[in-house]
């Protein structure tokens, strides 16, 4: 399993950092501290994918960066509405997922992505979605992004 974790973590971190930078103008770098943030959580969202492999991507933002993420995407100065913040979180998860899958499964693999679904906490999400195959943590301009990839064993 450590090899699988490593082979998935690198493309996952790259897809997440590129998405945060290009879509939301947020600078992301490998987190100084290990583990998933448990305090000051802004939101958690997950979306399922189906195709040559099945699983889900989980994204948690913490440290108060969700309003900045949404306002940057929309080009606003103030904090957007809560529905817009939730929508922005879901869209970022969707773009990370769409970008990491071809890096893992190859350029010809076709996947269907599900609708982003909010979760109350990281443990609830990971328990509901199954075993985490890879997990990455990024420091993002004073906040943090934790991203996990869940891959279900082939049937």
């Amino acid at each position: 399993m450590p090899d699988l974790m490593e082979s998935l973590a690198t493309p996952l971190a790259a897809a997440a950092a590129e998405t945060l930078e290009q879509l939301a103008y947020l600078f992301a770098e490998p987190a100084a501290a290990d583990g998933v943030a448990t305090e000051d959580v802004d939101g958690i969202v997950a979306l399922a994918f189906h195709g040559p492999a099945h699983g889900a991507l989980i994204l948690q933002l913490s440290g108060g960066i969700l309003p900045a993420l949404a306002s940057n995407m929309l080009g606003l100065d103030g904090a957007p509405s809560l529905p817009d913040q939730r929508d922005a979180l879901g869209e970022v998860a969707n773009v990370i997922c769409g970008n990491v899958l071809p890096r893992i499964a190859g350029a010809t693999a076709v996947f269907a992505l599900g609708v982003p679904t909010p979760y109350p906490s990281w443990p609830v999400a990971t328990e509901a979605l199954g075993g985490v195959a890879a997990e990455v943590h990024l420091d993002v301009e004073g906040g943090r992004a934790d991203i996990a990839l869940v891959v279900h064993p082939a049937a």
């Binding site: 930078e21 103008y25 600078f27 770098e29 940057n72 080009g75 606003l76 100065d77």
Partner: peptide, 19 residues
């Protein structure tokens, strides 16, 4: 420190927010 990358990101954010 990735100053170059941060410079580009800050510029793009500034331009996008200012239309």
């Amino acid at each position: 420190f990735q100053v170059g990358k941060r410079n580009v990101l800050t510029l793009k954010k500034l331009l996008w927010k200012n239309g």
